[in-house]
Write a protein that binds this DNA or RNA. Structure first.
Lengths: 339, 339
DNA sequence: ATTTTGAATGGACACGTGTCCATTTTTGTT
DNA sequence: AACAAAAATGGACACGTGTCCATTCAAAAT
């Protein structure tokens, strides 16, 4: 492997000077700089980041832990972040936790081993790994939570305005006349902001949430499919279903179609995430869209900014607004005329 | 940062012995091993992979370069590969080339800088970076091409049986009575296997491909949308459209819907990739599905196997079969009855 | 011509690990 | 009990970089 020493020898300068051609070119004479650059190109020299990482104590590397990279939300986030950190000379190491704490821990260890400078994480529910994250932070890794954050973690985070989004959606459905509105989400231990907002706002609207509506999905397409079938079998099925993620929406929509439920005549359907397919199906779905790209860019910006300015303890808490896009999957419930 | 020296001191053994507790535990007495392990847990020691990488000359890291991580094909591939390499103790560094040679080169440099042990790449069209890849390989990085390979690259690759898949699809459409079959793909310079197969098999079937059918998309949803509109405006529009990727299918389907083309009555539609949405739209699409998981797992297996057995020059060329799933988007063309 | 200043270049060392070889301890054999 | 053999443990060094300090050189000021 060619190192800076080879470059220095080739250019006839000291190793220190050669390194400056890479890191602080302004310190060199134009002539010297050119000589070294020629040598670099001739030898195809590429600085060894692993050596730099060892010396500095942390690598030019950002870890990204997502829930499930197959979900377009995370895929798009990954892509945006990857591009942004590459532009700053960092590499992105990716892992997903499948919303599972123990798998997450394994991957956190891996990130630790790689001495990532920063960590962008959509952590699994539960505070199981909070202690580990705290230690990571203490050892110099900047940590940014995204899409979800652990209560009292104290880390920076980038969140959607989930309460606002759910409120927009629920008021939209309520104004159409819906009273029996079910949500597909995770209710357990009030960990999910959207679930909390759903509970709160339903109450604000004077609506009761039947016990039967309060069962959770597991955030998978398959789980939402099963959960939707359960809702349909209820003696009093909902007149509207509000899916809290685009991933679950696919499962729910499949169930509705299979059961020949007409949308929106029989049931109105609303979901978070403006995935490409939602406008291709019949009827095109009403969605609440997130500014994924903006959030991803900001995440990369915050993390790299904190690293380069060595402000590891500075906390940023940011919220981003979402937007309702109405298409054709929500309408007044049939029963509404009876009121 | 706590190092193995701290562990050794804490456990009252030499650094070498402490390291063995991590790397070759079978060499230690049960008592010693336990003592060291206790110290490791107490100190939350995690080996510094950057130091190991420096020493060994390459990191415990695999690079993955995909075309566009937002496409479910690549997202699923990424996930499968990530999981498989994590299980072997490797980290996965992800980048996408957006099918662009110069962006790819930037990311290859980044991979080189990180001293990745292996590289799984869906390279951009064109041989622009072949030389760089060859150098990487020469310097000890195992290279595996996936989904597409550069002619005469000499690297290992994992490919779909593209010819078989296209043949299955075209014969299926031909048997239904279609003669004017257009393909959405990249024709330029015969770089894409599916485009080549389309050209060959159409000839085998005794069918002519009009000049107007031979224009390329840019592999994006948007590009396929525009290309489909062009096809529809033709004086003799095709009776069947065969989309060579699931990504393009979304754009094409959108165009067909917007133009109120009835599928399959007006035009039959067939596509590669069994994406989730293809069975949710009306009509559910006939698709050719790829064994993405199998291919991803095999890719990880080959790369890590070659690295660990230090057989960097061993070449594996593997092909995987695909399968036609018929749903409701293909039927006999209307004109067929006139024959 | 001499001194002063700042710019440009060079040298030495440590980061934590893996590898190789040396030394000590234990076990088995007679 | 004495020795050989094997098992267990220890020590020294290099990987390529970033950082700090030292040295040399050129230009400006006297």
């Amino acid at each position: 492997m060619t190192s800076i020493l080879d470059v220095a020898k080739k250019a006839g300068v000291s190793p220190t000077t050669a390194k400056r051609a890479v890191n602080q070119p302004h310190l060199l004479t134009k002539a010297t700089l050119e000589r070294v650059q020629t040598a670099i190109e001739f030898l195809n020299y590429e600085p060894d980041r692993t050596a730099g990482a060892l010396r500095r104590g942390h690598s030019q590397t950002i870890g990204l832990m997502v829930g499930n990279i197959i979900e377009p939300f995370f895929a798009q986030l990954t892509r945006t972040i990857a591009k942004a950190v590459h532009a700053k000379g960092y590499a992105l190491i990716v892992a997903d936790n499948e919303y599972d704490t123990s798998l997450e821990l394994e991957n956190l260890r891996m990130f630790h081993g790689q001495r990532v400078s920063g960590l962008i994480i959509r952590s699994a529910f539960g505070t199981g790994n909070l202690e580990y994250l705290r230690r990571l932070h203490q050892q110099g890794t900047y940590i940014l939570e995204i899409d979800h954050f652990l209560p009292e973690s104290g880390f920076s985070h980038i969140m959607l305005d989930n309460h606002g989004g759910v409120e927009t959606g629920l008021r939209y459905l309520h104004n159409l006349g819906h009273r029996k509105i079910a949500a597909l989400t995770v209710f357990e231990a009030h960990q999910d902001e959207r679930a909390r907002a759903y509970t709160e706002i339903m109450t604000d609207l004077g609506l009761k949430i039947p016990k039967a509506y309060q069962r959770s999905t597991d955030l998978t397409e398959e789980g939402a499919y099963r959960r939707t079938l359960e809702l349909l079998r209820l003696p009093e099925p909902p007149t509207a279903i509000f899916s809290m993620t685009g991933n679950e929406a696919a499962g729910a929509f499949r169930a509705l179609k299979e059961q020949h439920i007409r949308i929106p005549e029989d049931i109105s359907f609303l979901t978070f995430d403006d995935y490409s397919w939602t406008s291709l199906v019949e009827p095109p779905l009403d969605v609440i869209t997130q500014p994924i790209q903006t959030m991803g860019l900001r995440a990369a910006e915050l993390v790299i900014g904190a690293i380069e300015r060595r402000q590891l303890n500075q906390t940023h808490l940011e919220r981003f607004a979402c937007r309702l896009i109405t298409r054709s999957s929500c309408a007044a419930p049939r029963s509404h005329s009876l009121h």
